[in-house]
Design a binder for these strands. Structure first.
Lengths: 106, 106
DNA sequence: TATATATGAAACCGAACGGTATCATGTCAA
DNA sequence: TTGACATGATACCGTTCGGTTTCATATATA
C-alpha cells in the first residue's frame, strides 16, 4: 500500500525537493530551468520532479518538447491535513488563533 | 547541514513513525509498549523512536529502567510552519473569488 | 532535411534505510 | 545477592535512495 500520503511525505523528506517546491511557488518552470537552480545533473533533478509528481505535489503540463512543472497546492494541502490529527495538542494560544481563523472562513 | 527541519521531515517519511506519533498522541508509552503495537522487533521500534527524537517530534523521560516516550507538539508545530511559505497558494477557491471581485471592481 | 534542443530512460555506484539477531548494561524485587 | 526485566548497542543484510553517465527519442528550426 503506497498511499498518496506516503508518497507525499516521502517527497518532502529530501531538502532538494522542498527547495524545488519553493522555487515552483514563484513560477512554473521546465526541467532545465529547475535544474539551473541546483548544483546537480538535469537527470537528478528530473528524478526529484518525478518523485514530487508521484507525491502529487506538482502538476506537469507537456507543451511540445518542453515540460512545464507547476506547484500543486492541493497536494500540499492534503499533507497539511495530516497534522489535523494532533489538533488537540497544539497549545492554547495557537488553538485560539486557529479557532479565529476557522470562524473567519465561515 | 542536518537541520532540525530536515530531521523532522525525514522522521515523517516513514509510515511506522507517523503511526507511532498518533499512538503517542493518545498516551505516552515505554518502548516495549510502543513495540506491542507493531509487527516488528523492539529493536526496530527503538530505532524509529530514536529517529523521532532526533527530529524533535517526541520527548523522552527516563524513569528508572523504563523510558517514557511522549509526543512533542512543538516539533510538529515547527514542521507545520514550513508550509506557511505557501500561504499565498492556499485556498485557490477564495483567491479566485478575490481576483474575480477585484477584476469586477475595475 | 539536417541539426540543435528538451526530455526520457536505463545501467551503475556508494550511502543510507528498515529490519533482524545477538549480546551487554542497568535496575527493580525477592 | 541473585535473577528477571527494560533498555542500549552493535554487527549484519537486502533494499531503496540520491546521484552520475550514457544513449535514445521527440520536436523546433534553419
Amino acid at each position: 500500500m503506497t498511499t498518496s500520503e506516503q508518497m507525499g511525505f516521502r517527497a518532502l523528506a529530501d531538502p532538494t525537493r522542498r527547495n524545488i517546491l519553493q522555487l515552483l511557488a514563484h513560477q512554473s518552470l521546465t526541467i532545465a530551468e529547475v535544474a539551473d537552480n541546483f548544483d546537480m545533473t538535469r537527470a537528478a533533478v528530473k528524478k526529484h520532479l518525478t518523485v514530487l509528481q508521484d507525491g502529487n505535489l506538482i502538476s506537469v503540463q507537456v507543451e511540445g518538447r518542453t515540460r512545464l512543472n507547476a506547484l500543486n497546492p492541493d497536494g500540499l494541502q492534503q499533507l497539511l491535513s495530516w497534522f489535523d490529527f494532533f489538533d488537540a495538542f497544539w497549545d492554547t494560544r495557537l488553538n485560539t488563533l486557529k479557532s479565529a481563523i476557522e470562524k473567519d472562513m465561515q
